[in-house]
Computed example of a mutant assay.
Amino acid sequence: MTIFKSTVFAAAAAATALPALADEVNIYSYRQPELIKPLTDAFTEETGIKVNVAFLAKGMVERLQAEGDRSPADVVLTVDISRLAAVVNAGLTQPVESDVLDANVPASYRDPDDHWYGLTTRARIVYASKDRVADGEVTTYEDLADPKWEGRICSRSGTHAYNVALVSAVLHHHGEEATKTWLEGVKSNLARKPQGNDRAQVKAIWAGECDISIGNTYYMGKMLSDDEQKAWADSVNIVFPTFEDAGTHVNISGVAMTKASPNPENALKLMEFLTSPKAQEIYATANFEYPIAAGTSADPLVQGWGSFDADTVNLMTLAGNRADAIKLIESVDFDG
């Protein structure tokens, strides 16, 4: 029997049911413990409710399915809309009606059926060499397929969740045929076979292997906070590309209540707290992201990267494009 023994722990074995305690709430989280603890500490201080967190590196859907009605989890915290959608589509969450949640989270950042709510956003941007890319040389995602970038782009795997979400957005805006053509163009512009993570692409720009790459905004903050990686960050500018007829692609971290929640009242209190301006600013600052509640501000470092207008498409729409996006990515052998 696995029991929540501490506020933050690494979950390794399937958990069995916990009693519904009036002063506790249990989270399954894809986010690292160090990013969760400032939030859970603040919630406990404000409400007196103890928060227990199981950190899952993978397999959240499978674990919740295996536990069924015996699951101790009240709330799931995830990054990337595809992971949120996977939990919802598996029938493992329940809709939540809350005026507080609706007031804190704009419609484009919550599930139309009230199963999940966004907490913070990150933009999928272009990292551009300060030395080899002129201001204004890249302004749209469509630009990335322009032959002028031949041999100048670095990318992580096309089938990584972050790139799949971006391709899902291209598919939404341009349709299947144009998206395939775009993918073929981007692939032909790659300087090397897709590999590594977003930071590895910036390192490659620093090393002169390519001139631009695609990455999430928060990686700039992480690189600037690392003694070795700061030089990589200093070698690039952040560019906020847009779609030709829309805004900058964003993704989210989000929260949902499990269908089997043994402590639904406490779970709702936690969700409302997590979407509050106070909690969103704590969360966003910890990971260099953007809070989404009205009246909130990003960390000054993040604000210094510039402003952008986010694409307004509801992210659940993009999640619905995921399977087709992966098929297109594989059809052009993007990682080959």
Results as ranks from 00 to 15, higher is better:
H160N: 13
L171C: 04
T140N: 09
P147C: 09
A161V: 15
H173I: 13
H173Q: 14
I153Y: 11
V164I: 15
V167H: 03
Y141Q: 04
T139F: 06
A165F: 01
D135C: 12
Y141K: 03
R152P: 14
E142N: 10
R152Q: 15
A165C: 14
T159I: 05
A165Q: 07
V170L: 12
H172W: 09
E150W: 00
S155V: 13
T159N: 04
P147G: 08
E142P: 08
T140Q: 07
S155L: 14
L171H: 02
P147Q: 09
V170W: 05
V138N: 10
D143M: 08
K148H: 06
G151T: 08
Y162H: 04
T159V: 08
N163W: 00
L171M: 07
T140R: 07
V167S: 01
A145R: 05
R156Y: 02
R152C: 14
T139I: 11
E150S: 14
A161L: 13
V164C: 12
V138R: 07
L144D: 08
P147R: 06
N163E: 04
S168I: 01
C154V: 09
G136W: 04
H172A: 11
G136M: 05
A161R: 04
C154W: 00
L144G: 09
H173D: 14
V170H: 06
G136C: 07
G158N: 08
I153D: 11
K148G: 06
L144K: 10
R156A: 03
S168D: 04
W149N: 03
D135M: 12
E137D: 11
T159D: 04
S168R: 02
S157L: 15
H160P: 02
L144E: 09
D143F: 03
V170E: 06
R152V: 15
A169W: 00
A161G: 11
G151N: 09
Y141A: 01
A161H: 05
D146I: 13
D143K: 03
T140S: 12
D143P: 03
A145K: 05
L144M: 11
V138P: 07
I153H: 12
D146C: 13
R156Q: 10
E150G: 06
G158S: 12
G158A: 14
T159L: 00
P147S: 10
A169E: 00
K148D: 09
C154E: 02
H172S: 11
V170G: 02
S157R: 15
E150Y: 03
L171P: 01
G136P: 03
V164L: 14
A169I: 00
L171K: 01
H160E: 11
E142G: 10
